[in-house]
Amino acid sequence: MTQRLRTAVFISGRGSNMQSLILAARAPDFPAEIALVLSNRPDAAGLRFAADHGIATAAVDHKIYAGREAFEASVQALLDVHRIELICLAGFMRLLTAGFVARWQNRMINIHPALLPAYRGLHTHERALQDGVKIHGCTVHFVVPAMDEGPIIAQAAVPVLDEDTPDSLGKRVLEQEHKIYPLALQLVAQGRLTIDGNRVKSGSGASVAPLIVS
């Protein structure tokens, strides 16, 4: 069997997307191994889930560092110790410096609760409802220095219902996040993707098809 890519998942809270990645990676033929779960918050609930599943965990409290560069130096040291090859951001609520992002170019992915390039940033479900859109969803993308930008790997869409609230819409979007994040990690770890400008293509040269949910 081909050696699986050693992957770190960064979280700041309960890490529900981290949980979906861990469960998917338990399959023996999954091309990535979740080798480390790292949080900037020592009290993050997701650390317990990871530890209970036999995965190494680390807490690097950003509040004790003088700046982002010092914080990231400690993070990088841990990544080196654990021989990490790929990073998944899963609700990691810290902006990373351009230098750190460049070091992990095309080896760090993120999931965002909106159909990028729409609704970058926070409060995506509230903003979608305020704008009256009929389709909302989530996106997995490669990380670049600009927030919530970068080549898109996969997307999933859900209809916006008349009776939706931010909570009900967010719950349906989260269900799709749990499906497409493992899929995106699988594609990246298999080396099946190429980046052409801001487009992600499969090995056949075709754009990666999004997962659309009706």
Rank of each mutant, 00 (worst) to 15 (best):
A189N: 10
D164L: 13
G150H: 05
A45S: 10
V81H: 14
L21T: 00
A98P: 08
R83A: 15
A45Q: 15
L183K: 10
R127T: 04
T97I: 10
N106I: 00
P210W: 04
T57Y: 09
F30T: 00
R120I: 03
D29P: 06
S74E: 14
D80L: 15
A66I: 10
N198H: 09
V133L: 07
S39F: 08
P210C: 06
A51C: 09
S214M: 12
L96D: 07
V173G: 00
V101F: 06
T194V: 08
G91V: 09
L21H: 00
S207I: 06
V188E: 03
I109D: 01
D52C: 04
S214K: 14
R83P: 02
R107S: 12
I212Q: 13
T57E: 08
H112S: 02
A44W: 04
I212M: 13
S12R: 09
N106T: 09
V173D: 01
P113R: 00
L115P: 00
L96Q: 06
E69I: 15
A209D: 10
L5I: 11
R107T: 12
A66M: 09
A189T: 06
F30S: 00
M1L: 13
P31W: 04
K134Q: 13
G150E: 05
H125D: 05
A35K: 11
V9K: 05
T124C: 05
N17C: 07
A8C: 15
R107G: 04
L187A: 07
Y119M: 02
I153R: 03
G137D: 08
V133D: 02
G197C: 03
Y119L: 01
L193W: 01
S207E: 10
L129D: 01
A70L: 14
G191N: 06
L185Q: 01
R4W: 04
V173H: 00
R94W: 12
R127N: 07
K179D: 03
R14L: 04
H125W: 02
D162M: 14
T139F: 06
C138K: 04
V81I: 15
I109E: 03
G99T: 13
T165R: 07
P28T: 03
A24D: 06
L211E: 12
R94D: 08
A58G: 11
L36N: 10
G203L: 09
V188C: 01
G197F: 07
Q176N: 02
T7Q: 04
